[in-house]
Design a protein around this nucleic acid. Structure first.
Lengths: 203, 203
DNA sequence: CCTACTTACCCCCAAAAAGGGGTTTTTATT
DNA sequence: AATAAAAACCCCTTTTTGGGGGTAAGTAGG
């Protein structure tokens, strides 16, 4: 029997998930947590095969938490469960070791299929995410870590010279990154750049 | 018996909610929709006392949909159910006729309490939102409709002169609004202004 | 009636960003 | 070894924004 643990702060959702999984008969729920902190305390004890992980946790980013879990318990398969359907979030999640990705408006059957697939060592993406990842689009934005850092600093309101001082680069270099970001994200100016950054969760 | 309808695109959540409400015995679920369009078709037929309405619907904003419902069916009590806990969203929702506001990580009991309260004609806010609305904070930002419009145009990347041409005002007036928005939101520059605008869902 | 708020307008000047054109070095990946 | 991509750097000019001062008409609520 597959052992599943759930981490999600939406209590109504975890309850629904729990009964869905239990009633299906394909797996048992060995634990539920509503924050990363709560999960850390019990994960070693629960020893699940699959961890259903929300990306929008209240305490830390699910992206970082996924990485943390895979470092400490590489054997646990992480199945992301979230409302976000942004290319960069999915890709970073998979880069950080997730075995699958489900969006919350997916069908119940997809949740069960996902659990089975990742427990069997496969990679699983729900239908909508599979389409998103396969079809290349100008909305599938991928930035290098340095570009993401610059974008974050710009979004926090630092000017080119302030950023240059902070990360010990020439202001001209910062200008270059800024120009490139505007080009890559198809933004006319900083306002649009920041809007896209926040909406696409690039930062 | 209280008749409840649910509109939310998260299928797992609606299933959980349905069994929660049914098992409680305080109400019956007369209908479930996963989009505003789907809801429109059936609402007159379902005739619920209470409508549990998600703010983040896939087709239209829950804010607008709430207004629409209250205009057509003033007798139906709208109980917002959402992940957003931003002051401006709550306030606009209540202004648009919602009788209550629940966030999705609220306890199951709060959902039932909310349904009972709004069915009885009361206003109901879940604990966290109640605190948010009562305690005045500089994060409880409230903008006039005109200010929100300007903020939207700025976020879309229009310059002062472009905005002035669009809404037939003097560029100096736009400058005035811009300065005031920076002051009100405590933003150092446009980048931070747009970041706050998107994060706080002011636009 | 008065106050608070919204909406709308004006000037000067310094700072920052955008638009245009580039180059070089390092680091992966095939 | 070749190529691609990322990371870093440079100059010139125009446009846009931000900081500092303001004013004034309309309107909604106590």
């Amino acid at each position: 029997m597959i052992k599943v643990a759930i981490v999600d702060d939406h209590k109504i959702l975890t309850e629904g998930l729990e009964s869905l999984i239990t009633e299906s008969g394909i797996a048992i729920v060995v634990g539920v947590a509503h924050s990363a902190a709560e999960c850390r305390l019990s994960l070693g004890f629960w020893k699940p095969d699959v961890l259903l992980l929300d990306v929008g946790l209240p305490d830390i980013s699910g992206l970082d938490f996924c990485k943390e879990i895979k470092e400490e318990f590489p054997v646990i398969k992480v199945l992301a469960l979230t409302t976000h359907s942004e290319y960069t979030v999915v890709r970073q999640m998979l880069d950080n070791g997730a075995s699958g990705y489900l969006i919350k408006n997916a069908m119940a059957e997809e949740v069960l299929a996902g659990i089975k697939a990742v427990a069997a060592g496969e990679t699983f993406l729900c239908h909508e995410i599979d389409l998103l990842m396969k079809r290349p689009s100008e909305k599938n934005i991928w930035l290098s870590p340095r570009e993401r850092e610059l974008l974050r600093l710009i979004s926090e309101g630092f000017t080119n010279t302030e950023i240059a001082d902070q990360i010990f680069l020439s202001p001209e270099t910062i200008r270059g990154y800024r120009k490139n970001l505007l080009l890559k994200l198809g933004a006319k100016n900083t306002a649009v750049l920041v809007k896209i950054a926040v909406e696409q969760k690039l930062i």
